[in-house]
Simulated scan of single mutants.
Amino acid sequence: MHHRTLGKTGFSISEISLGTWQVGGKWGESFSHQNADHILNAAVDAGINFIDTADVYGDGESEKAVGRLVRSRSGERIYVATKCGRRLQPHTAEAYQPAALRGFVEDSLRNMGLDTLDLVQLHCPPTEVYYRPEIFEVFDRLKEEGKIQHLGVSVEKVEEGLKAIEYPNVTTLQVIFNMFRQRPAELLFKEAQRRDVGIIVRVPLASGLLTGKFSAQTTFEKDDHRNFNRNGEAFDKGETFAGVDYNTGLAAVEELKKVFPGQPSLAPVALRWILMFPEVSCIIPGASKPEQLLSNLKTEEVPALTTEQLAAVREVYDRLIRPQVHQIW
């Protein structure tokens, strides 16, 4: 496992890490602590040392599983990142208040049974929140109290990321970036690197589209966001298939298979493409079973993409995907 530095946190983290949105079971199923323990321990056994969770994943159950992992493997340095803010109902800019965010951080500490959190990230707040310094200042107080080590933000839009990293205490930026969402590489990555802000890449496989294993006949469970959120019915549609129309995404995947023939899964190649960008600190693909985790880890065996392959990926993006997503996020 290769490691990269997570910006000004100074943490040396596995470039392939783990996101835990669906770690307790497939999206749409109830949370399974047995499955979560299996996946989390398999991840650490494989060399992953950075786990990303959130207080809303499984209504706190994901945080509990991650905390149990860290406590059970106390001799190993496992970095924990969680998120706060999405529990606000309604999830509006006005609802973001320092006292509420402090309460969420303290709830996360209790959920995980930890004394301090390595990284707490604002969880995709409304754009207006990024223009309110008092929201960012409360995390300085929490750091002084030893409840958190660092602050990060998880954003939907490039604009939000550019504004967030103006705050000196923002150490990391989590953003959607993959073969179907390439805009962050144009300016955001460069500005983050200039400010020594670590880049955490989420939705690296476009909700599974970039595995190359889906078809027009693939069905998703009723409670799976890939079924109910394709048009942003529940939250930002960019979180589902990276905002790409499903059928357009399938067509683009077929084009990518021609660029990378003979691959049993496109996933390792798609993840290697992301790691070709040196500004990226880590990728946090999810896994609902150990087999998916092991597939993601095969990325470490994939050679660097050639100039020709990179150009071909860009051509597919420009021709099929760019018109749908580029200027939205």
Rank of each mutant, 00 (worst) to 15 (best):
T82L: 01
I274N: 15
L256V: 01
L271S: 12
A93W: 08
L88K: 03
A270N: 10
T172P: 10
F139S: 02
N169W: 02
R272Q: 14
R322M: 14
E94V: 07
S265T: 11
V129R: 12
T172F: 01
Y130K: 10
E137L: 07
G161S: 10
E106Y: 01
Q121D: 04
E291L: 07
V56Y: 00
G238V: 06
R87T: 12
Q193E: 13
Y96R: 07
W27H: 11
G103A: 04
K64F: 01
D52I: 05
F189V: 11
L209C: 07
V120D: 00
G7N: 10
F11D: 07
V259G: 02
Q193P: 04
G60D: 00
E315A: 14
V153M: 06
G103L: 04
T299V: 03
P285N: 08
T5Y: 08
P278I: 10
P204Y: 05
L69N: 05
D224H: 02
E134M: 05
N111P: 05
I148V: 02
F139W: 05
E255P: 01
A185D: 10
E191V: 13
R230F: 09
E233H: 04
P261M: 00
M1E: 02
I13A: 11
E300S: 12
L114P: 02
L142N: 06
Q327K: 15
R68S: 06
I48W: 03
C84D: 03
P98A: 04
V44I: 07
F31D: 04
Q121R: 12
F228A: 10
A46Q: 05
A267K: 10
I283H: 09
E144H: 13
Y317H: 12
S30V: 10
N169K: 11
R77Y: 04
D37E: 06
P323L: 10
K257Q: 12
E221S: 15
G75K: 03
Y130D: 03
N247C: 09
G58V: 00
I165L: 13
N169S: 10
T248R: 15
F220R: 07
E291D: 09
V302Q: 12
S288M: 04
E300L: 15
W329C: 14
V66A: 04
